[in-house]
Amino acid sequence: MSPELEAEIAALLADPPADPPADPPADPLQVIAEGMIVPAAHHHALATLLKAHGYGLYVTVAASHWPQEKASRKEPNPPPERFEVATVLRNPTAPGAPAFWWSVHLAPAEAIDSIVDLFAGADWQEREQWDLVGVVFANHPNLKRLMLPEDWQGHPLRKDYAIDTPHAPWR
């Protein structure tokens, strides 16, 4: 990643988001590195910026569910339930074809901006994450279940979903 791009990302993240999230991550302005945590309000802008700088190959999005853990002696105040959404983009033309990924932390009812308008390939990947994890992608044109039947209840990749849930009359 070139220094100019890093500077631009830093400038973007320095801007206070229009509506600050209730629970901002501890240090949004950490070093520009793989896996950095980006406020949800900046997610779409960051993708736009990266696309303009050659990161044009849509790779993947991976959402994960982090339920609130029980308070322990080590951690008396465990963090509340949250979702993490990691987005990966790749620059296929630069030397070394670098991939870059960042992560957005969401409260349970919070939505993340969809980037389907930038990357058509995000369509099915985001639908899959909604289907399996239950993360809502705002402004997605067709946010329906992808892998499971449309009348399915629940999101199987959440940690509180039992792996052997029955589904009458087939299993």
Binding site: M147, L148, P156, I163, D164, T165, H167, W170, R171
Partner: peptide, 11 residues
């Protein structure tokens, strides 16, 4: 044992 798989077609 997975939520989406039928345990055998003879069911």
């Amino acid at each position: 044992d997975i939520y989406s798989v039928v345990p055998g077609v003879d069911t």
